[in-house]
């Protein structure tokens, strides 16, 4: 009962916090606070918050592994869906505010420029994850659901690469995201190394084969 209350409260809190970046943009937009290049500001901000949400989502497992806090898993779907929410807004701002829905220009931009292609690929890969995030799909797909949702690792790498490739010269900010992502992935590898090793190297089988 108490545990349920905790989770409900945590969910409400996360929901409100996750909407703050959007609320800030709306507020800045209404008060002429988006600066000299408001379109770039909005797109960059939405991209940044997509990455932040993604890294927050990916930090659930490491926190569980290190600190044994298991109930956070119950918030993970909401975190993932907020990541998808922000990436949709990011893409909408790019397509609408920047490109004025000039589809020809957008297709050309995606095909010709690797940083756009990488970012767009990450978005496309997120669609099946968002679609299969409900309880019914989890039950229906079972083991395949787990396999499918491992795509998130690739998505995160593509997302950070997208940021890294778009900055003109100073990569210090994308570097921070890369380091955080590396740590989050490294913790998983460290804790799961017996099982990971097992899939590649099975001494028992090797012995019987000899």
């Amino acid at each position: 009962m108490q545990r349920n209350n905790l989770i409900i409260n945590a969910k409400i809190a996360f929901f409100v916090i996750a909407l703050l970046p959007l609320a800030r943009l709306v507020w800045l937009g209404l008060t002429d606070g988006l600066g000299a290049n408001p379109v770039e500001f909005v797109i960059r901000s939405l991209g940044t918050w997509t990455l932040v949400c993604l890294l927050v989502t990916l930090s659930v497992t490491p926190i569980r592994l290190i600190f044994g806090i298991n109930w956070l898993v119950q918030l993970r779907r909401m975190m993932g869906l907020f990541t998808f929410f922000y990436v949709c807004l990011h893409l909408l701002a790019y397509a609408g505010l920047d490109q004025w829905f000039d589809w020809q220009a957008i297709v050309h931009d995606i095909a010709k420029h690797p940083y756009v292609l990488v970012g767009f690929s990450a978005f496309v890969l997120m669609i099946p994850l968002a679609v299969t995030s409900n309880q019914a799909m989890i039950r229906r797909l079972r083991q395949r659901w787990k396999m499918l949702h491992r795509l998130v690792y690739l998505i995160a790498i593509l997302g950070v690469t997208h940021y890294w490739w778009l900055v003109k010269k100073d990569v210090s900010e994308p570097f921070i995201y890369a380091v955080v992502l590396f740590i989050l992935l490294a913790v998983r590898v460290y804790y799961k190394r017996p099982r990971l090793l097992g899939t590649f190297w099975r001494p028992d089988k090797a012995a019987t084969g000899a």
């Binding site: 937009g29 988006l34 000299a36 290049n37 408001p38 379109v39 770039e40 909005v42 505010l97 920047d98 490109q99 004025w100 220009a105 050309h108 931009d109 010709k112 420029h113 690797p114 940083y115 490739w165 778009l166």
Partner: peptide
């Protein structure tokens, strides 16, 4: 002649606000 990483075909004029076309 594009920058290797992005297009140089269009530009955004600073000061035209959130809803201006490139």
């Amino acid at each position: 002649v594009d920058h290797p990483r992005w297009s140089q075909a269009t530009e955004r004029r600073i000061g035209e606000g959130l809803f201006a076309r490139r």
